[in-house]
Amino acid sequence: MCAAQTIEFHQVNKRYESGHQALSNLSFQMHAKEMAFLTGHSGAGKSTLLKLIALIERATTGSVVIDGQNLNAMGRRHIPFLRRSIGLIFQDHQLLHDRSVFDNIALPLIIAGMPPAKISPLVLAALEKVGLEGRDKVRPIMLSGGEQQRVGIARALVGRPKVLLADEPTGNLDPELSREIMQLFVDYHLEGNTVLIATHDLDLVANMGKRVLTLEGGNLVQDIPAVGEVTPIEEDSIHTLGEGHE
């Protein structure tokens, strides 16, 4: 199982209609149950990379393969089912402000057609996990930015997706809370799931000892493997640099 690749990028280019080249000839793989950080300055292409995995954007050329499925070949009708297998955490939370915290977190389960009786315990457990127990009935607007972020995290985790993608999940949090949230991701990874987190918080990343992919101007300029792990070097991962390896 460990050998299986969950996320594969093969010479991926992404050029937006505006002409902006967000990603250039990007290749990398993440095996199942791996955890990695994606770093780089803003505009380096981190968000674009995550969007390609969830088919929010499509690659201009090259191929993105998730769990053996080439996303280029995936029709519009199948996108929802891909997204159900991926937990997405957004920098701007993407919560529904006219619904309670409970309803926000329950949304993926409702969409998946889960019976109501099973939803409630899962939602409450997810709330507890992100430290928001007892806040299920309030509207997200009543919560602080950090709390809203954690509601978004609970929503991403509640369906227990095999892949978790997070775009600047600690952007609004103070350092202590950021570490706790990161620990939450590590725990989720240890439960046997693939986790990819885009962040510019290099200090935080350095302490985690996980694989770090660094983007610069849409190119993968550095791929540091996790401490104590050996990542197999792929033939086509052109941009892997030696200096970070231990």
């Binding site: 315990p121 430290g131 725990d187």
Partner: peptide, 20 residues
């Protein structure tokens, strides 16, 4: 209060998994 909850999260994770 929320932070205390986050700290306890790893311990809670295992039983939750069993229920899911």
């Amino acid at each position: 209060r929320p932070r205390a909850g986050v700290r306890s999260a790893p311990k809670k994770a295992a039983p939750r998994r069993n229920t899911t």
